[in-house]
């Protein structure tokens, strides 16, 4: 069980690092995708687009190393909840936009596939969070 928890934490860490890469490489493209969601005011879009990928990096590194694992796992859950809510909002509003989840390229539009993928990551994040919190309580 302990091994499974560690593997899940490592997998989540790698996912977060992988998700951050494209956004760090091309922050303008990520900012445009974020603006297209029409959730944030224009003046906040660039700042969030610049900071968010680095928070993903820190969360990913913490999950990989096990340092501040509770904070990282909780952050991962919160971020996934926000991402899924944003996608649901865009779907509800009929906004045909890119997900902006793993790539800033034009081949990642919001679809059932992106919902299933992000939902699975959310489930993994919850599993990791439960594991690290239970482990911390027992320690």
């Amino acid at each position: 069980m302990r091994t499974l928890g560690i593997l899940a934490r490592l997998a989540l860490g790698i996912i977060f690092l992988a998700a951050a890469w494209d956004k760090i490489v091309d922050p303008m493209a990520f900012a445009k995708i974020m603006r297209n969601y029409q959730i944030l005011p224009d003046m906040a879009v660039a700042g969030v687009a610049l900071v968010l990928p680095w928070i993903e990096v820190v969360v990913g590194m913490c999950l990989l190393t096990g340092c501040m694992a509770r904070g990282a796992a909780l952050s991962a859950c919160l971020m996934m909840a926000v991402f899924l809510s944003a996608m649901a909002w865009a779907q509800h509003k009929g906004i045909a936009t890119q997900c902006g989840c793993f790539t800033t390229k034009a081949d990642d539009s919001i679809s059932m596939v992106t919902f299933i993928r992000d939902g699975s990551i959310m489930a993994l994040a919850l599993l990791v969070a439960v594991d690290v919190f239970v482990r911390a309580r027992r320690a």
Binding site: L50, V51, W54, G71, L74
Partner: peptide
């Protein structure tokens, strides 16, 4: 404190 450190580290790095 963990959450704050993650946030500050992320913002600082960015």
């Amino acid at each position: 404190l963990e959450l704050a450190v993650i946030l500050v580290l992320g913002a600082g790095l960015s």
